[in-house]
Design a protein around this nucleic acid. Structure first.
Lengths: 187, 187
DNA sequence: AATTAATGTTTACAAAGTAAACATTTTCCT
DNA sequence: AGGAAAATGTTTACTTTGTAAACATTAATT
């Protein structure tokens, strides 16, 4: 039992991230996180206020990955959408944390609110590149529609994984994300 | 303390529903539910196996409301969409329960899987009414796209409630759901 | 009426979040 | 360098919550 690890906070968040990715947030508990970080049950509380703050950390990490898709928006907008969808399918439980519930009171974490806005701004920028002359209102409507389509698609595709006899055509969509997006929303 | 209430199960589910609607599932705890039903802490377990079963009951109740929107699909498809969206905005925490997470292991509740399929079938039927000659694949693609758009829109509009300075144009969408839907997805 | 099933209650425990007091290490100031 | 103060870990302990087990009462069945 050596006192004073370096970057214990990082370590704890990392451990929690791994548990959440593999087994969902419900399975993340402080004692287990502490054990895997080889530290006492409550060491955590020297670094974060409470478990909800830990959740916020995972949300921030998730956004880091999501926002990487924003490179090259102008000529690869559907790539951003596909990137977002793949994130949702690869990290479903993180995705749940970010978009799935309202339990995490966002107003407590203003920086996270900013991350949301940044992600959405990516959509707005993308829309403008192929609707350069549209009014702000029309851009907003299209952006909402695209964001909704992409976000909603994640829900459908995820569920199609869970369910047994889901239509095989969903598999086509999943394996041809960009084509599907161009065909439906990105136009 | 009178033994043997009639319909205690109904009562417990009702109480849990009310708590969940008002304060989210996280605030639903067995002792509080029992207290509000004026019954001992564990009476619940004579009627349902565990708390997850209670969650499943709330999901079923939610679907009852959602599926009421399926009347009159042929000539009021956008009404179905608007109904769905209004459900999501009126019962956000129930909506979370249904669509927001994957914690509730659906394969444990086959009847709920059926409810999902029924709701989605409504979309397929609706699409067929205005794309009568489309192939099954195209119908499916359009249906997924519409469902995604509608589902995703709920997420955006809900969040726009939570956040402070959200674009006012979202308010327009919220107050003109059917028009928005016709304009974007239902065409 | 007697047995059995159904349904409530009481008691009790285990898991999990976290507060508080204590211990050790590091930092920083003179 | 020496010692106070801050930072960071640990131990202990309390509370909340889900739920199992044993017991009590009422309802159903024969």
């Amino acid at each position: 039992m050596s006192y004073h690890k370096k970057n214990l906070k990082e370590k704890l968040v990392e451990v929690a991230w791994n548990i959440c990715v593999a087994e969902s947030w419900e399975k993340v508990n402080m004692r287990e996180v502490a054990k895997k970080a080889r530290v006492s049950n409550t060491a955590f509380y020297r670094h974060l206020k409470n478990k909800n703050d830990l959740k916020a950390e995972l949300v921030r990490r998730g956004f880091e990955i999501i926002n990487k898709g924003k490179k090259n928006l102008a000529n690869n907008f559907s790539g951003y959408g596909a990137h977002y969808i793949r994130f949702g399918l690869k990290y479903p439980y993180i995705y749940d944390l970010i978009f799935g519930n309202t339990d995490l009171d966002i107003s407590l974490y203003p920086d996270i609110e900013v991350l949301f806005d940044e992600a959405f701004d990516g959509v707005i920028q993308g829309v403008k590149t192929f609707m350069p002359d549209a009014s702000d209102k029309d851009v907003m409507i299209k952006a909402v529609n695209i964001w909704a389509s992409v976000h909603g698609l994640v829900g459908i595709l995820r569920r199609s994984d869970l369910q047994t006899n889901k239509d095989k055509r969903l598999k086509w969509i999943k394996n041809n994300l960009e084509e599907y997006l161009k065909m439906t929303t990105f136009k």
